[in-house]
Structure formats: C-alpha cells, structure tokens
C-alpha cells in the first residue's frame, strides 16, 4: 500500500470523526440549553441559574423548587426523553428499510398505538397509566403484525413501507370508527391524546420511559455497526458475516420499543421521527447515520416545537400541532425529490 493513500485515508477519517464530535457536542449543548429554557419561561419567569440550581438540588428555595421540580421538570423531561426516543427510533427505521420515508409514523406502529389508546379511552374508560399501557401494547402488536405480513425471506424496503401504509390506513379508519361511537367527553379526551403533547405526560408514565432510555439508546448505538452492514443489502451483509435476520430483529425491536414508549408517554407526535435522521445526516455528512446525533436532533426539534406550541402561540397548543405544521411541507418536499431521483427503494 502506498503511504499517500494511507495519509489521504487518515485525513478523511480524522475530518469525519472531528465533524461527528463537534456536531454531537453542539447538539448536546443545544438540547441542554433548550431543556433549561423550557423550564425558565411561563407565567412565572425564572433565570437559567435558578432552574439549574433547583434541578440539581444545589440550594433549597421552596417557591422556585415547586415551579421547577413540581410543574416544569416533568414536561421538560418528557420533551427531552420523547424527542431522544423518536429521533433514534426514526433513523434506525429509515436506515434499516433504506428509505427516508420509512419512519415509524408511516409504517403503522404509531397508528397501532393510537388505535389501542383511543379504544382504551372510549370503551374501557382508561386514563393515565392505563392509556400508556394500551398505547405500548398497540404499538408492539402493530409492529408484530407488520413483521408477519412483510417478512417473507427477509424484507424489502418498499414492500414493508407499502404494507405499513396499508396497515396505518386500516388502523386510522378504525380510530375514526371508535371516535364516532364515543361519548363527547371521552371523544375530547381521545382527540387530545391523538394530537400528541409532551405536557400530557404524568410522572408515572414518564418514569417508565426514563428507565428504558438509558438501556435502549446505548443498545441502539452498539447495534449501529450491524446497521451499517445491513445498509449494503442482505447479500453483502451476509457475505460480510452479519447474522442478518438476528441483527435486523434486534434493531427493529429496539426501535419499536423506543417509539412505542415515546407514543405511550406523549401520544403520536408526528414528523419528529421522520425529520431527525435526515437532519442529523445533513450535519454529519451523507450516509453517516449517527444514531446519537439523530436522537439529539429529535430532542432539539421536540423541545423547540413544544416551546413554540406552549409559549409563542396566542393560546397553548399540543406539541403535535406544531410538529405537524412544520413536518408536512418537509414530507411533500421529500416525496417530490425522492421520486425524481428514483432512489426511493
């Protein structure tokens, strides 16, 4: 081998890892700043110092502690955790199915969660933690159904997405039916859940997600190596020594759990999972697919959307309204350009 080639490689590799380190650090700082900012604003304004002191239990100030720890920390924590989970889950789905459209919003997982949650609210008068449990169960069942329908001798991206869209449409139709059978108060509660809001998370629901994240996120990052092989197609991945079905099942299970928990806590907040991966890729460079960066991007997007929804709008809105308003044009742009390049599959 020539020394020149080694040098070129070393330089490209170093440039890449420096870029990844810088981008991830900046994203982490941005998320931390947004996290603190979320707890500063509101009818009772606080300084960043007061928030940080209170969150870290550095000093006791009953008034501030009540506002920060009692009222705002659960919402901010939910925004952070749900954003991280959606971002990581979305990028794993997209890379696994080799399609930027393949976010869990579109392949039926979120719809399954919605159907179960709304069914629970309307027919079983479920509330709080029970709704969360139904949503989790619904998401997992929908994912299992997709797996069984789309998995024949492995899976092709397009097949999975088309079946996913079909399953999602079916579930959404059923959600409409359930809503039409509901009493007014239950329908209101269900509609509120369906729009998706980090503010609706109760502490007990949030705790489950907060326990799961420190396990699931590192697992996703560890599995990334296999994802990078699977991206080259099943034959190449197998030739490289990947146990393709096992790796894919592990990746998919991790991603489904992440999105299911996020939806269970905050309802179906659309588009964050779709957008986070591609935005992170833009920042890191093409085909880098950093899961940590995508998770942080998801958190930054969600915290920003929640700030806009709660504080910049004339009346506070659910987070899902803002992510939907920003995400829909992006989806149209994605559909238009993906089709033109013919690189959808």
């Amino acid at each position: 081998m020539s020394v020149a080639t080694l040098d070129v490689l070393r330089v490209t590799r170093r440039r890449r890892s420096v870029r990844a380190a810088v981008v991830t650090t900046v994203l982490a700082l941005l998320v931390a700043a947004l996290f603190v900012l979320t707890m500063m604003v509101g009818s009772f304004r606080l300084t960043a110092g007061q928030v940080i002191v209170s969150v870290l239990h550095l000093e006791s100030n009953p008034g501030v502690d009540f506002v920060v720890r009692g009222l705002r920390l659960p919402t901010a924590g939910a925004g952070l955790a749900v954003g991280l989970a959606l971002g990581a889950s979305g990028t794993v789905f997209q890379q696994l199915l080799r399609n930027p459209l393949a976010s869990p919003d579109f392949v039926g997982v979120t719809s399954g969660a919605s159907l179960a949650a709304v069914g629970g609210i309307v027919f079983l008068q479920a509330a709080g933690l029970a709704v969360c449990a139904y949503a989790l169960g619904g998401a997992l069942l929908a994912a299992l159904l997709m797996y069984l329908l789309a998995w024949r001798d492995g899976v092709s991206g397009y097949r999975f997405i088309l079946i996913g869209i079909g399953v999602a449409a079916f579930f959404d139709g059923l959600v409409g039916y359930v809503l039409s059978r509901a009493k007014l108060t239950e329908a209101r509660q269900a509609m509120h859940w369906l729009t998706g809001s980090v503010g609706q998370a109760s502490e007990s629901e949030l705790r489950i997600l907060l326990y799961a994240l420190p396990v699931l996120l590192p697992v996703a990052v560890l599995l990334q190596r296999h994802l990078r092989a699977l991206e080259l197609g099943d034959d190449t991945a197998r030739a490289l020594g990947t146990r393709t079905e096992l790796s894919r099942a592990a990746l998919l299970a991790t991603a489904v759990l992440l999105v299911a928990l996020a939806v269970a806590v905050a309802g179906p907040i659309v588009f964050v999972a779709l957008v986070a991966g591609p935005v992170a890729n833009r920042l890191l460079g093409p085909a880098t697919g950093g899961i940590a960066a995508a998770a942080l991007t998801g958190a930054a997007l969600l915290l920003t959307a929640d700030l806009i929804a709660v504080h910049l709008m004339p009346a506070p809105l659910p987070t899902g309204v803002v992510t939907g308003a920003v995400g829909a044009p992006y989806l149209l742009w994605l559909l238009a350009t993906t089709n033109r390049r013919g690189a959808g599959g």
Binding site: E231, L232, D235, T236, A239, G285, G289
Partner: peptide, 12 residues
C-alpha cells in the same frame, strides 16, 4: 461481491 449490492445514499 453480490450481483447488485446496494449503497446508502451519498456514501463516500
């Protein structure tokens, strides 16, 4: 090397 390997979008 399979017949039609797939490359991720934009990979260097």
């Amino acid at each position: 090397l399979p017949q039609s390997p797939v490359a991720p979008d934009g990979v260097t």
